[in-house]
Simulated scan of single mutants.
Amino acid sequence: MEAARFEFAATCFSCVEELLKKTGVKASQVNFVITNSSLFNPTPSLSTAIMNHFKMGGNTRNYSLGGMGCSAGVIAMTWRARCWSCTPTATRWSSATRTSPTPSTQTEDEDKIVGVRLTKDIVGVGTRALQGNMTKLGPKVLPISEQLLFAGNMVTRQLSRSVPPLKSIMPAAWTKPYVPDFKKAFDYYCIHTGGRGIIDGLEKELKLSRTQVEPSRASLYRFGNTSSTSVWYELAYIETFQGLAPASVCGSWRLAAASSSTAAS
């Protein structure tokens, strides 16, 4: 516990201090503090630790997200956007701390060493959750042409199952699920850096270009699996090397997978 707190203080406090100096914002002017951590969820919370260290005012509201695995970063960003929309003039800080790779269950191994155990089910669970998120996200961001193609494919597949003779005369492509072209909705992609296989799989499934998956590959190569903080490394890469303005993150799609959930924003 103490070692984890020391690591958090050493990384986050220095980052917040540097950001305050860079922007010229006073700690008392911050309206919201949001922290996210994949596993480390202490009391007092991490957001409270930041507030106390920088002596932020009583009007500052804080939210500490923990125990959500690698999806916590995307959830934190979504929550930040909601707080910002409710208070347009608010100054807010979002912080992330990495404590472990994608978690499933924390347990002891045969040598009585406590660690995080992943099962083979994690890929299937993440895939199903991502498919559900894509289905809900599609109507909100895709152009009408892609929505019509997706709806037509769904009706066609339902007919092929309910009327077997139709399936035999349909082209094979009509009976396969249609994956919408999300490139028509998003310019940038932040894929969870859980491993090369995850990035390769989404690159193939979503038919992304090498440039579009470059931020994820570069973050994985440089920093490894940074769990819930991976989206921050990727956004920083995009801002630095691909020209995305800090205020234009609405044009990016952020995907993060955890042991029991997949978040998309």
Rank of each mutant, 00 (worst) to 15 (best):
L46S: 00
A76E: 02
T48Q: 14
S209T: 08
G66Q: 01
R210I: 10
T107Q: 11
P171R: 03
A72E: 03
A90R: 10
V213Y: 01
P139Q: 08
C70Y: 00
M56H: 00
H192F: 00
A10C: 15
Y189V: 02
A3D: 12
E110G: 09
S14R: 07
L159H: 05
S252E: 04
T240D: 07
S100K: 09
S265T: 14
N225P: 05
A245G: 04
T229Y: 12
G124V: 05
L20D: 00
L244K: 03
Q131E: 15
D109E: 05
I199V: 09
R92M: 14
R80Q: 12
L39E: 05
W253A: 00
K22E: 07
G197Q: 09
L118S: 04
T107H: 12
L142Q: 02
T105E: 14
C70R: 02
K55A: 07
R92E: 13
T11Y: 11
K183T: 13
L206K: 02
E2C: 08
K183W: 05
T99L: 08
V141K: 03
T60A: 03
A27Q: 01
S45T: 15
Y237G: 01
F8M: 03
P171I: 05
A151M: 15
R80A: 08
A129R: 08
F6V: 12
A76M: 06
K207W: 15
K112E: 14
A90Y: 09
I191S: 00
C86H: 10
S265M: 09
Y233Q: 03
P103K: 00
Q158T: 14
A218R: 04
F223G: 00
G67M: 04
E110C: 09
G224N: 07
V30F: 02
M56E: 00
T91F: 12
A236S: 13
R82T: 15
T193N: 01
F32D: 00
V30C: 04
R196T: 13
Y63N: 03
F241A: 02
A129P: 10
P171L: 05
Q106R: 15
K120S: 15
D111W: 13
F150V: 08
F182H: 04
A10Q: 14
A129Q: 13
P88N: 08
P103Q: 06
V155S: 10
T105G: 10
K22T: 10
G73S: 01
H53V: 06
S37T: 11
N31M: 11
I169D: 05
N31G: 09
G24F: 07
A72P: 10
N41G: 06
G194V: 04
A129Y: 06
E110L: 15
K112R: 13
V114T: 15
S216K: 02
C83E: 12
S227H: 02
Q242A: 03
Q158M: 10
A49K: 07
M51T: 11
S219G: 01
M77H: 06
P44N: 06
T211G: 04
T87F: 13
K167R: 11
A90E: 13
A173S: 15
G67D: 02
S248V: 05
Q158P: 12
K184Y: 12
S265D: 09
P164S: 03
S261I: 15
E214I: 03
M154A: 09
E214D: 07
A27T: 06
R61Y: 08
V30L: 01
A4T: 06
M77Y: 05
I238K: 01
I238W: 01
P165E: 02
